[in-house]
């Protein structure tokens, strides 16, 4: 039963990503060329409203539907893993023009070459798992 809820959330998210054009390679390229406010507006308004909502959840002690406390687990303190990992991610994001959400949107939209990106991303995750202990964290 709960699966239906996750499925509906996913479908909604997929539609928003496609219709907002955040899943378009061209929009990502344009963003890194500072060619339009569009992507900055999407991320900025999502984060701006997100900050207000999360602060509200904390202040009023709002619980999830099954009565549990809501908190986004704090990420461990580090600089290098976020900076180096972030840069590597950004290089790929700009080249493939898709991050892990939009990849699946594009698969559904019928752009078959995105399968190459998805399989490579799974492989990239696997490579991280192998080299994890040799990397600065």
């Amino acid at each position: 039963m709960r699966s239906i809820i996750y499925l509906i959330i996913g479908i909604f998210f997929g539609i928003v990503l496609f219709k907002s054009e955040a899943a378009s390679w061209f929009r990502i390229y344009e963003m890194f060329q500072f060619g339009s406010f569009h992507m900055y507006g999407i991320i900025g308004s999502a984060v701006g409203i997100g900050i207000i909502v999360i602060q509200g959840i904390k202040r009023f002690g709002i619980t999830s539907f099954d009565g549990k406390q809501i908190n986004i687990a704090p990420k461990e303190r580090s600089f290098s893993r976020y900076m180096f990992g972030g840069i590597i991610f950004g290089l790929g994001w700009a080249l493939a023009g898709a991050c892990p959400g939009p990849m699946f949107v594009l698969l559904g939209a019928g752009y078959m070459p995105i399968l190459v990106v998805i399989i490579s991303a799974i492989l990239g995750t696997f490579l991280y798992g192998i080299f994890k202990d040799k990397l600065p964290h």
């Binding site: 991610f89 290089l91 080249l95 892990p100 990849m103 991303a121 995750t125 490579l127 991280y128």
Partner: peptide, 8 residues
Amino acid sequence: GGLLVGFG
């Protein structure tokens, strides 16, 4: 592109 996204 995919490898970098997944790894990063």
